[in-house]
């Protein structure tokens, strides 16, 4: 059976009609046409699908879309303010935090969740916070530098 729900993604309400088993990730990627969030695993281990749900990070691949009904969702597509990149996005580019870019959407969301709660994290706090986001390309160095630089910029 399908159920009606309204997903508020990046500030826009999207009415949808979906089956209970559908993940938030698959609905946002296909029905809503926002494939910026990625799917990298079957078991909530990679973080490529991370979104903010009411301001908190969630692995959207393993979250039922219907449970997000009426709640605020932020994806990587919602980070930039119009044409203006978010400091995290800019610093990811400047500090070598992006190579293949597949982990980047989840990594940026995860980093945003961290900075929203803890605007001046230590390096270790950054590393712990990003540990649910696997990156195979960068060795995390550029990413950690980027989060530090963005934190400094936002402060």
């Amino acid at each position: 059976m399908r159920y009606d729900a309204v997903l508020n993604v990046n500030g826009t309400d999207f009415p949808v009609e979906i089956e209970p088993h559908r993940s938030l990730l698959s609905v946002v990627r296909t029905e809503l046409g926002m494939p910026g969030s990625k799917e990298g695993c079957d078991d909530s281990e990679c973080g490529a699908c991370m979104m903010l749900l009411d301001g908190r990070p969630v692995n959207s691949c393993s979250y039922l879309a219907l449970q997000a009904d009426g709640r605020k969702i932020v994806t990587v597509e919602g980070l930039a303010d119009g044409g203006e990149l978010h400091p995290l996005q800019r610093q990811f580019l400047a500090q070598g935090g992006v190579q293949c870019g597949f982990c980047t959407p989840g990594m940026l969301i995860s980093a945003k969740a961290l900075l929203d709660q803890n605007p001046a994290p230590s390096e270790d706090e950054i590393r712990i916070a990003l540990s649910g986001n696997l990156c195979r390309c960068t060795g995390y160095q550029g990413i950690v530098r980027a989060v530090q630089a963005a934190a400094a910029e936002i402060a």
Binding site: M34, P35, K38, T75, V76, A80, L85, F92, L93
Partner: peptide, 13 residues
């Protein structure tokens, strides 16, 4: 880079 940090770049899937 910009494609990748904004989530607008497209991968095969």
């Amino acid at each position: 880079g910009k494609d990748k940090v904004t989530g607008l770049g497209r991968y095969t899937a």
